[in-house]
Amino acid sequence: MSPVIEGFTYRRVPVADGVALNAAVGGSGPAVVLLHGFPQTHLMWRHVATGLAADHTVICPDLRGYGASDKPAETGSDTYSKRTMAADIVALARALGHERFALAGHDRGALVAFRAGLDHPEAITHLACLDVLPTLDMWNVMRGVRASVGWHLYLMAQPAGLPEQMIAAVPDAFFGSFLDQWTADPAAIPAEVRTAYLTACREAIPSIVADYRASAGIDVAHDEADRAEDVRLRMPVTVVQQDWGAALGYDAAALWRSWSDDLRHHTTSAGHFMAEEAPAEIIGRLRELLSRQGLAPTPQ
């Protein structure tokens, strides 16, 4: 039996035509939605979710295309755009009775959370992004041999067909390599959770690649349009990252400040999978964020 978040109830919630999301829901109080990264599922939040559920309603979905959520065929560039995936999350929260909610995302989920913050400021009260840069900034800093850490970004940016075939030939080796290389504490992802991640990824290769392909195309266009119009995040924002800026030669905090006037930027000694490696630290950062005073909702 696949592992679950202890004490949480699982729901299957329709969010768009023909698309339903799998979501674990627990606790009571103000809503917090937690979005997972790659190559993971909602299970990555198992420690943080139970820690926050003491005084919050915590919602942990599998993103569209991942885990036990629906995986629609890529019929156009927007099928897996972060704008579409962000709309899924707002629809999910509303279906569960939450018009306004705090949102935290890790890796791919952080890109969805960032887009939700820009597109739906009336819904997002607080925003946390773990170990990413906004898509436009990410591509701008990825250059030179030091950027080889992001080789998978370029592979999955290619037209449909070859990337999927290559990954399908050695799926456990491909997805497992990131679980091995990106963690500072291998014990943080026990065998049963690792197996669940690899199984979920094997079953979602086309949709995972489509998600990454969108980030090399339509997601960049959306960020560029917002940058040109000076659209900014209007809610309190917390970013927690490894010190990638020092490694790759850029000022991560400055890049994030270009999108937010109410930013607190932190670096961590944990590895990429920080919610599993250092859950107490991440719970603390999220609780500090949730204590900050947000702006009034945008009139509709």
Score class of each variant (00 low, 15 high):
176 G>I: 14
72 P>K: 10
76 G>Y: 09
101 F>S: 04
71 K>D: 04
156 M>W: 05
214 A>M: 08
17 D>Y: 13
107 D>T: 08
95 A>T: 15
77 S>R: 15
36 H>I: 10
162 L>E: 13
76 G>R: 08
100 R>S: 00
75 T>Y: 01
81 S>Y: 01
32 V>M: 07
240 V>N: 03
52 L>D: 00
105 G>Y: 03
53 A>W: 02
178 F>Q: 05
278 A>P: 05
288 E>F: 07
41 T>M: 06
4 V>C: 08
174 F>I: 14
175 F>K: 10
31 A>Y: 02
165 Q>G: 14
106 H>Y: 09
109 G>P: 03
66 Y>T: 04
1 M>G: 13
234 R>M: 10
30 P>V: 12
296 A>V: 14
135 T>R: 01
209 V>A: 05
269 S>Y: 13
245 G>I: 05
269 S>H: 15
10 Y>N: 15
129 C>P: 04
261 D>W: 12
106 H>F: 01
58 V>K: 00
13 V>Y: 07
242 Q>W: 04
53 A>D: 04
197 Y>I: 13
113 A>H: 07
267 T>L: 06
94 R>W: 02
172 D>S: 10
112 V>F: 03
101 F>D: 04
293 Q>I: 15
199 T>A: 14
29 G>M: 06
72 P>E: 06
130 L>P: 02
193 V>L: 14
28 S>W: 00
64 R>Y: 09
208 I>N: 03
80 Y>P: 07
211 D>M: 09
249 G>F: 08
227 R>M: 11
192 E>M: 10
9 T>S: 14
73 A>C: 09
286 L>C: 05
128 A>N: 05
286 L>M: 07
33 V>R: 01
29 G>Y: 13
145 V>C: 11
36 H>K: 10
